[in-house]
């Protein structure tokens, strides 16, 4: 129990350090840029493909129920609300936690194991700023965009699936999909992934940065990063959804 609290305290201090050091110049733009490439561009295929598949599956599932109720016209709206409000942000975050979280954990742990972090420090470069901050920043910046990609690929998947079954026109689909959507259904849920990004970046970096077990620590850091960041993302989602409902009561359907 004591260890747990110690751990929580360590992670929290680590997170705080991330925030503090993010805004302390100089800002490592080059590192941030390359991390955006790593976290963002290279996650895009995964996110887009998952979104598309999920969109198809979602429509297949909701379709029969809605058609039973004579609410076939609601299919695009259900699809868009589901993706924009929850599936997009959460699944994008979980995918990123899986792909990027493991990557960050492993890379930093490996750098620690191979003394690269020492080497950086030996060059009088703040390794924390050089390695951790850009990764967290990249996660924070990129996740909303990946979420948007997820939303649209999900919608595209839904459209393709619906088109195959009912030959609905794209224009009608888009109109119906966005008619029932409010800004409160899109902006807050998309921006909440900033928090997810912070969690993923921080937790993964923490495990990588603090490992001191050599080579086998790398694998463990990667696993722990994925497990804990996924878990924290889902837990944070509960709180964030509640907060969004408080701030935008009309978005609570």
């Amino acid at each position: 129990m004591r260890k747990l609290f110690e751990f929580v305290g360590k992670v929290a201090r680590f997170g705080l350090q991330v925030i503090v050091k993010t805004f302390r110049p100089p800002i490592e733009f080059r590192q941030i840029w390359s991390q955006i490439a790593e976290v963002g561009s290279r996650s895009l295929p995964l996110v887009a493909a998952s979104g598309l598949a999920l969109g198809v599956v979602m429509t297949l599932h909701t379709r029969s129920t809605l058609v039973t109720f004579g609410a076939g016209a609601m299919i695009p709206a259900v699809q868009s609300i589901a993706f924009f409000v929850e599936i997009g942000p959460l699944v994008a975050a979980l995918l990123v936690a899986g792909r990027v979280g493991a990557g960050i954990g492993a890379v930093i742990a490996n750098m620690r194991a191979t003394e690269q972090i020492d080497a950086i420090e030996a060059l009088s470069i703040d390794s924390f700023k050089f390695l951790v901050v850009p990764r967290v920043a990249a996660c924070v910046l990129v996740l909303p965009l990946l979420t948007t990609f997820m939303d649209f690929s999900g919608l595209l998947g839904g459209y393709l699936s619906e088109y195959a079954l009912s030959h609905i026109s794209l224009r009608l689909y888009v109109t119906r999909a966005f008619t029932n959507l409010d800004w409160a259904n899109f902006v807050p849920p998309t921006l909440k992934t900033v928090v997810f990004g912070f969690i993923i970046g921080t937790v993964s970096s923490f495990f990588g940065y603090t490992t001191n077990e050599g080579a086998e620590g790398v694998g463990r850091a990667a696993t722990n990063s994925v497990v804990l960041s996924s878990l924290l993302v889902i837990l944070a989602d509960i709180i964030l959804v509640r907060c969004i409902f408080l701030a935008f009561p009309e978005s609570a359907i």
Binding site: A37, G40, R42, T148
Partner: peptide
């Protein structure tokens, strides 16, 4: 790739 990613993401948003 990063440029395309960012532009496309912001555009979609």
């Amino acid at each position: 790739t990063v440029g395309i990613f960012l532009v496309a993401g912001v555009a979609l948003f």
